[in-house]
Design a protein around this nucleic acid. Structure first.
Lengths: 217, 217
DNA sequence: CATACGTCAATACATTTGTATATATAACCG
DNA sequence: CGGTTATATATACAAATGTATTGACGTATG
């Protein structure tokens, strides 16, 4: 009548000295994610197993798997904002602003691999808290971009039609393309970058053109 | 020692006359999807329960839950192509082509509700077969749009810079915005439509402007 | 030193899951 | 009629899951 005999002895053997941190658990969870699994499809036990702790110890760090997921999103968001800031600095130094920014984004996608993938892939799925967290990060991105656009307008004299909307369009596009690039062999990512750059140029060119037109009228 | 006593007696009682169709199962699955559940998170038993059949009967119709999911995507795609065709007809009659098309898209989103949501939400998740199916539908959309763009170019004289890329940008944007609209109260969708329309105009304006510029050079 | 606390493992249990096996019933065809 | 085939069911079981309970062990605090 009893189940669960004596299996499930943790990653045992190795005498655990250091207490496991929440970050350890998050890393373990990330390692379990391949291109066709969502965070919320991971089971508590699975994550605990990967982290080498007993299932119940999970509760010491997170209330839920969803709770952990939100923490992951926050982390991804922080890394993302780092990308933006870096891209921004390059922006003021070099001329080909768009390309270098997109490249920075995709590079980070490569480096921080999974963490950022999560944000990209799970934008649309998961618990409300989850989605909310992603949305927050997206808006950060948009706002910074918008600010940058209006700043550039003053410098170059090219006004932008509806900077907030243009920013939103660009942001969504970059993220969508990023998500597409995320599960593509690295050698094909160059093309995605090229495409994205052209798309952004279209939007900016269009926004500036519309600005002139509506100013003339 | 036995488990599973006598529960799980189907939706029993009602004497089943008609055999259950694959479509019935698909509908049952769709009914189970709310805004924060992915198709692949549904269990076989759950779907069977909702359809009122025994768990094993599921196998008569689909090999997998994923198999069913692909069927759902196909269905959503077919409905989507209907939207495009309809939008296309309006396109030749009215002037505000973009707006009416976007409205048609969002309308269909409202009508066929869940089915289309699935396609929108699960673009990025699920088994490879799943994703492939979505990609196929997306490409249909892109191709038709691209065709339409070049056709319009000849009529209006406004050439488009890289019609394929512009189509891709517009498609991704419409889908992304559609996904955002999908889990929003209906009264806020009008704004999403407005935003999407402006975004598309930016892209088209930009693509045309770039076309002129590269022609001049 | 004692005692409380934070961190973890072990055991247990009720549920749920996917699927194997066997069976019943209707329809169809010779 | 008898036999085959498609459809659906019931029963069963091993595996996995979330969580409750209990206690071990170290560290810090009184």
């Amino acid at each position: 009548m009893n189940s669960e005999k004596k299996i499930e002895t943790a990653a045992s053997a190795g005498k655990r000295k250091k207490p496991i941190t929440a970050q350890d658990l998050m890393n373990a969870a990330v390692k379990l994610l391949d291109s066709h699994r969502s965070v919320s499809s991971l089971s508590l036990r699975e994550i605990a197993r990967a982290a080498g702790i007993a299932p119940n110890s999970f509760y010491r760090h997170f209330r839920d798997v969803d709770d952990l997921a939100v923490a992951l999103i926050d982390q991804a968001g922080r890394s993302l904002r780092g990308v933006i800031r870096e891209a921004r600095q390059r922006l003021s130094l070099e001329r080909s602003a768009i390309r270098t920014s997109v490249e920075a984004f995709m590079e980070q996608l490569d480096a921080e691999q999974k963490t950022l993938h999560i944000l990209l892939r799970e934008m649309s799925i998961g618990s409300p808290a989850f989605r909310q967290a992603v949305d927050r990060e997206l808006r950060y991105f948009e706002d910074e971009l918008c600010e940058e656009l209006t700043r550039m307008a003053k410098v170059t004299g090219h006004a932008t039609y509806e900077p907030a909307l243009a920013s939103k369009a660009i942001t969504r596009l970059v993220f969508t393309m990023g998500a597409a690039a995320a599960d593509l062999p690295p050698e094909e990512r160059g093309q995605i970058i090229d495409e994205t750059v052209v798309m952004i140029k279209m939007i900016m060119e269009g926004a500036q053109s519309l600005a002139k037109r509506s100013a003339k009228k």
